[in-house]
Design a protein around this nucleic acid. Structure first.
Length: 273
DNA sequence: ATGCCTGTCTGGGACAGA
C-alpha cells in the first residue's frame, strides 16, 4: 500500500498536474493540503472519474485538506483537531482506509515570527501532539501525513542552505522542539528512516530560481506509528512533479507499507504480474 | 528592508504562502 502526501497549492488550478501524477504514481491513499477551495467547489467528480473516493474539508481561499482512496471511500474518523472549538481553519482530517488510520494535516506556517501567527502555529502543534498521543499506540497502522511546515534540522538532508531562512518560522528552535517531542512519542519519519542523510526535499519556493537550483526544503512528512513502521518498505519524493507545467511549489512524498490492510497483499500480487 | 513567484478573491491590488 502506497500512501502519499501532496500540498497542491490550489486543487482546482492543479488538476492537470494532480491527475497526471495519480495516473503515473498510482498511490492507494493520498493526503492533500492547501486545497484553496470551498467544500462546494471541490472537484469530487473528476477524482472519482480517476478512480478515487474522496473526503475533504474545504475553506474559502486558504487552507483545506482532503484524503483520497483508490477504489474506495475513506471512512471519516475526525474533522479538525480537538482542543480549540474557536479554530475554524481547515487543517486536519482523519479517516480509515483499508485497515490504516490516516491523519492528513496542514500545520500552520507561522510567519512572521515572533507574532500571533507563530503563536497559533505552536498552539496548533501542541494540539496535534496531544491528539497524536492517543493514536501512537494503536495496534493497527497509523500514518500522520502532511505539510508540517517544519524543517527538522539544518542538515543538508533537510535544507539546501540556512542563511536566508534562519529567521523563518519553519526553522525556529520552538518549531523543531515540538517536532522532536511529537516523534519522541514513538513516530517514525518514513523518509528519514529509509534515506538518512539524503536531501529528499519536498518544497522549492517559486521565487529566485530555487527549483532549477535544487534549493529545497524537506517539510512534508509521513509519520508512522510502530505498527505502521514495522511494515515500511519504501519511501521517496516524486520530485519530477515539481518540474511539470503549472506545478505546485511542493512535490508529493510517499511511503509504501507492505501487506497493510485487507486485500493489500492481493493487490501487490496483481501489480507484480 | 524589499523583491523575488504564484495562488485566491476579484476584477486591482491585498494578502498569504514558506
Amino acid at each position: 500500500m502506497k500512501i502519499a502526501t501532496f500540498n497542491v497549492n490550489g486543487i482546482n488550478g492543479r488538476m492537470p498536474v494532480l491527475l497526471a501524477w495519480l495516473q503515473q504514481a498510482q498511490p492507494d491513499i493520498v493526503c492533500l493540503q492547501e486545497l484553496k477551495c470551498t467544500d462546494e467547489s471541490f472537484p469530487r467528480q473528476a477524482l472519482e472519474d480517476a478512480g478515487y473516493g474522496a473526503l475533504w474539508s474545504g475553506q474559502k481561499a486558504w487552507n483545506g485538506v482532503a484524503i483520497l482512496a483508490r477504489g474506495s471511500q475513506p471512512l471519516e474518523s475526525r474533522r479538525g483537531l480537538p482542543g480549540d472549538p474557536k479554530d475554524t481553519q481547515s487543517r486536519y482530517l482523519e479517516a480509515a482506509v483499508a485497515g490504516v488510520l490516516v491523519g492528513c494535516l496542514y500545520l500552520p506556517n507561522g510567519n512572521p515570527q515572533p507574532g500571533p501567527k507563530f503563536d497559533y502555529k505552536l498552539a496548533w502543534f501542541e494540539r496535534l501532539i496531544a491528539h497524536a498521543a492517543t493514536l501512537v499506540d494503536m495496534a493497527s497502522p497509523v500514518v500522520l501525513a502532511g505539510d508540517y511546515n517544519v524543517v527538522p534540522s539544518d542538515d543538508v538532508a533537510d535544507i539546501y542552505a540556512t542563511r536566508s531562512w534562519k529567521d523563518d518560522a519553519l526553522l525556529q528552535p520552538e518549531s523543531r522542539a515540538a517536532w522532536r517531542r511529537l516523534l519522541a512519542q514513538g513516530w517514525a519519519d518514513a523518509i528519514a528512516t529509509l534515506h538518512p542523510g539524503e536531501p529528499l526535499y519536498t518544497f522549492w519556493d517559486y521565487m529566485r530560481k530555487r527549483w532549477p537550483r535544487n534549493a529545497g526544503l524537506r517539510i512534508d512528512h509521513l509519520l508512522l506509528n510502530p505498527s505502521a513502521a514495522r511494515l515500511l518498505s519504501k519511501a521517496g519524493v516524486d520530485r519530477e512533479v515539481r518540474g511539470m507545467e503549472k506545478a505546485s511549489d511542493h512535490a508529493p512524498a510517499w511511503a509504501v507499507l507492505k501487506a497493510a490492510g485487507r486485500g493489500a497483499a492481493a493487490a501487490e500480487g496483481r501489480r507484480r504480474t
